[in-house]
């Protein structure tokens, strides 16, 4: 059975086809939730909530975008709603493009170090992303991993495009620091 057929049948309440769709998309949805929250238990709860919403809303899927894109957006909204309820900082609406004292790019001025190229593996990067502050992590995951544009992120998060760009830049700067620290620690152990 093709995915399109499974979607059509799931729209009519066919639970077996819904289970099939769950099997096809659970990994991507769960990975998204896990990367955005950095917490396994929360990610599982949110994956469950995303698929429950899918079951309730699948009849409204009109095929204007790919099903995976539509489901992905639904899952992102579930996570963002959860984070809002929790009161976690996403993106400060007042934030400007001015670099902050504690994590702005100025600290790099005059300090040459080896470039990262070739030294990052997947595990290190995943770990570094996990340890980003929530606001930075969400923007980084949405833009650099999931491929959303700044205008889409701004719309989803209710912030300006400039703000989204600023947060992304700070997230990458923070990641650079984390990855360099991790590399230095590894080198020291050898």
């Amino acid at each position: 059975m093709s995915e399109a057929e499974a979607i059509d049948r799931a729209k009519q309440g066919d639970a077996v086809c819904f289970e099939l769709l769950y099997g096809l998309h659970k990994r991507r949805v769960y990975s998204l939730c896990l990367r955005m929250t950095g917490n396994t238990a929360e990610a599982e709860d949110l994956t469950q909530e995303a698929f429950l919403q899918l079951y309730r809303k699948i009849a409204t899927f009109r095929g204007e975008s790919a099903f995976s894109t539509w489901l992905h957006r639904l899952a992102v909204n579930v996570v963002l709603m959860h984070l809002r309820k929790k009161g976690l900082p996403e993106v400060s609406l007042e934030e400007t493009m001015e670099p902050q004292q504690e994590d702005g790019p100025r600290k790099d001025i005059g300090a040459r170090d080896n470039v990262l190229a070739g030294s990052i593996d997947r595990v290190n990067l995943e770990r570094a992303i996990e340890s980003l502050p929530p606001g930075y992590r969400i923007i980084f995951v949405l833009h650099d991993i999931e491929g959303y544009e700044h205008n889409e992120i701004a719309e989803m998060m209710g912030c300006s495009i400039g703000n989204s760009k600023s947060q992304l830049h700070k997230a990458r700067m923070k990641l650079r620091d984390l990855l360099k620290t991790s590399r230095a620690e590894k080198a020291a152990k050898r």
């Binding site: 470039v115 990262l116 990052i120 997947r122 650099d144 990458r172 700067m173 650079r176």
Partner: peptide
């Protein structure tokens, strides 16, 4: 170079975990 490299590597991260 580092910032571009980080962005490139992030794009290569695949969904790796099953619930």
């Amino acid at each position: 170079q580092d910032l571009r490299y980080i962005a490139e590597q992030a794009k290569l991260l695949l969904p790796m975990h099953d619930p």
